[in-house]
């Protein structure tokens, strides 16, 4: 079946099987492998992408159900010239990345959070990422990364 999506600003026309998930489409059809699969059951948050601006688990969405939607993935966070977003930079400098498998999902969840709430408290950050498991970092440096972006924004 035919599916039309706007993915990171570019239109994509894809033939998909009826049961294909958005995650399958992104990883297998569009070869955007930055979005990760940790469980395929909506439990780990590694597959988080933005659908019309909202953070969702791509593994739970039947692709056809989001026909026509605007999708943002980790690959779209970097500008065309290759400049990292402030949040991506902050993840690197604050040490919020270890194995990095949770990172794309966290970046998407937090990008959505910062758009809605440019200066979240630490508790609001914790709450926002309660659906994103990170097994490596113990979260502290991720929370710091978000805090440092919020401070930069406010300083502007």
């Amino acid at each position: 079946m035919r599916l039309t999506l706007t993915v990171n600003g570019a239109e994509a026309l894809i033939e998909v099987a009826p049961h294909s998930t958005l995650l399958n489409v992104l990883r297998d059809e569009l070869v955007l492998t930055g979005t990760k699969e940790g469980c395929d059951e909506g439990e780990c948050g590694a597959c988080t992408v933005l659908v019309d601006g909202e953070a969702v688990d791509a593994c739970l969405l039947v692709a056809l159900s989001v026909d026509g939607a605007e999708i943002e993935t980790v690959e779209g966070l970097t500008s065309e010239e290759g400049t990292l977003s402030a949040l991506q930079e902050a993840f690197i400098t604050a040490g919020g990345v270890q194995c990095g498998f949770c990172t794309p999902g966290l970046l998407m969840t937090l990008t959505a959070l910062l758009r809605e709430n440019p200066s979240p408290s630490n508790d609001e950050i914790r709450e926002a990422i309660s659906g994103n498991i990170c097994r490596c970092t113990g979260y502290a440096q991720i929370i710091e990364a978000v805090g440092s972006v919020a401070r930069q924004e406010n300083g502007r």
Partner: peptide
């Protein structure tokens, strides 16, 4: 010195190739 990890950029941009990728 607390310098950042050298694979940080590959990991935050989604370009890092993991086993499953």
């Amino acid at each position: 010195a607390s310098v950042p990890r050298t694979d940080g950029e590959a990991k935050v941009t989604g370009r890092a190739v993991y086993g499953v990728d």
